[in-house]
């Protein structure tokens, strides 16, 4: 691969990451990956009315409340990030 090509490939990838939140890469940490997974899941639940109804019925809450709590959970769905190693 010529250096030029590598350069463009990288910028494309960077562009992709900037444009599409949640796009994976080789060095993704477990935490990042699972957090993205959960955010994707939560937003897809909010975006599909039958699924939202299903969860609201199971939980005994109003759809509006379930939607609100799901969106709230997107802020930090899997707890705080792990501590970084100080090496």
């Amino acid at each position: 691969m010529s250096s030029e090509l590598r350069y463009t490939a990288n910028t494309q990838l960077e562009h992709l990451h900037a444009r599409y939140a949640g796009t994976g890469h080789a060095d993704v940490t477990k935490y990042d990956w699972i957090t993205h997974q959960h955010r994707d899941t939560l937003s897809t639940i909010v975006g599909h009315p039958p699924l939202l109804s299903y969860l609201a019925i199971a939980d005994g809450e109003a759809i509006g409340r379930t939607k609100f709590e799901m969106t709230e959970r997107m802020l930090q769905p899997c707890g705080p990030p792990p501590k970084k190693d100080e090496d």
């Binding site: 939140a21 949640g22 955010r39 994707d40 937003s43 897809t44 909010v46 975006g47 969106t71 997107m74």
Partner: peptide, 27 residues
């Protein structure tokens, strides 16, 4: 698809009928 960053989840219109905003759940 009902994706996180693809708009479609929320809609807001200008009451004077000049513009519309369409938004995703994120970003």
């Amino acid at each position: 698809g009902a994706r996180r960053i693809v708009p479609g989840q929320y809609l807001a219109t200008d009451p004077k009928g000049r513009s519309v905003m369409i938004s995703a759940v994120e970003k």
